[in-house]
């Protein structure tokens, strides 16, 4: 375990040194957030949609932007190079599990990204004038449930990143693999269009898929659009999905790596 923590720490530290990257990401996410909020404000004309109020929508968008790194599925930073160019052979010669090495790299990287970016966006969003302001959480219970759900979302996001790693191993096309996973997860998970805006019938289906637990559930809980008992049930579902996905992806990866060939000298 110590070694995996070491890998996590390494990526975390590595990511923290890119300040300019963080600032530019931050700026993009901030203005993109403003843009989305104005867009949906115009659509909603100050009325709630299916009980989803404008202030809830604003909080939902801001949190989505602040925790962009959770919603956005990414590959572990070096995996692309490792798989396509064959540097992965060095991962094989460590007395460690290959899946776990990537998992903890990705986790460290994502956490560093989140910590660098979430606070400035949240602080600015809190002091913006109405109707752009991020509201305080509905209650302490909601806030704690929000944090719990967010942590599960983070792990789910890393796991979906591992699906992209798996597809990269299979296809040797990291960009394509990542796009597939991101489009599916973003569309079905409420990252592009907030789920409350979707028809109830579709929402019912999406509740059974893992994607909304990556980029929808925590922000819904925060904004108080779900009551506490529903929140707890859905957190339980997201946890079940997390374990199921980790199991399946690990299994797939195991078989894929068995057949791996590292070519060239």
């Amino acid at each position: 375990m110590k070694s995996y923590f070491g890998i996590f720490k390494m990526q975390f530290k590595g990511q923290l040194q890119y300040r300019a990257k963080a600032i530019s990401g931050l700026t993009t996410q901030f203005f993109w957030g403003l843009f989305k909020i104005y867009l949906y404000l115009a659509f909603m004309i100050n009325q709630a949609v299916d009980g989803f109020t404008t202030s809830q929508m604003v909080s939902y968008i801001w949190l989505g932007q602040a925790f962009f790194a959770v919603s956005f599925i990414s590959l572990p930073k070096n995996s692309e190079q490792e798989i396509v160019k064959g540097d992965v052979c060095y991962k094989f010669i460590r007395p460690l599990n290959l899946y776990n090495q990537w998992f903890f790299e990705s986790f460290g990287e994502k956490l560093a990204n989140i910590l660098l970016r979430c606070f400035p966006i949240i602080i600015i969003a809190l002091i913006l004038p109405s109707p752009l302001t991020l509201s305080a959480p509905t209650s302490w219970v909601h806030f704690i449930l929000f944090l719990t759900s967010l942590i599960i979302s983070l792990f789910l996001s890393v796991t979906l990143g591992m699906v992209a790693v798996y597809l990269t191993i299979k296809t040797l096309m990291p960009k394509g693999a990542l796009d597939i996973v991101n489009v599916i997860s973003g569309l079905l998970g409420g990252f592009y269009i907030p789920l409350p805006f979707m028809p109830q019938s579709i929402q019912n289906v999406l509740n059974y898929l893992p994607f909304r637990y990556v980029s929808d559930l925590p922000f819904r809980i925060y904004s108080g659009s779900l009551d506490i008992s529903t929140s707890i049930i859905q957190i339980a579902i997201s946890l079940a999905w997390l374990f199921a996905l980790i199991f399946v992806v690990k299994l797939l990866m195991h078989f894929a790596l068995k057949k791996t060939i590292v070519q060239g000298g």
Partner: peptide, 29 residues
């Protein structure tokens, strides 16, 4: 075993070499 592939790198690209070594220390216990 120890392996060095002349055309690939096993150390971490963007951190000081010492940090890579310390991680190897953790990995190999």
């Amino acid at each position: 075993i120890g392996v060095v592939f002349g055309q690939r790198s096993q150390l971490w690209w963007d951190v000081p070499v010492r940090d890579s070594f310390e991680l190897l220390k953790d990995i190999y216990n």
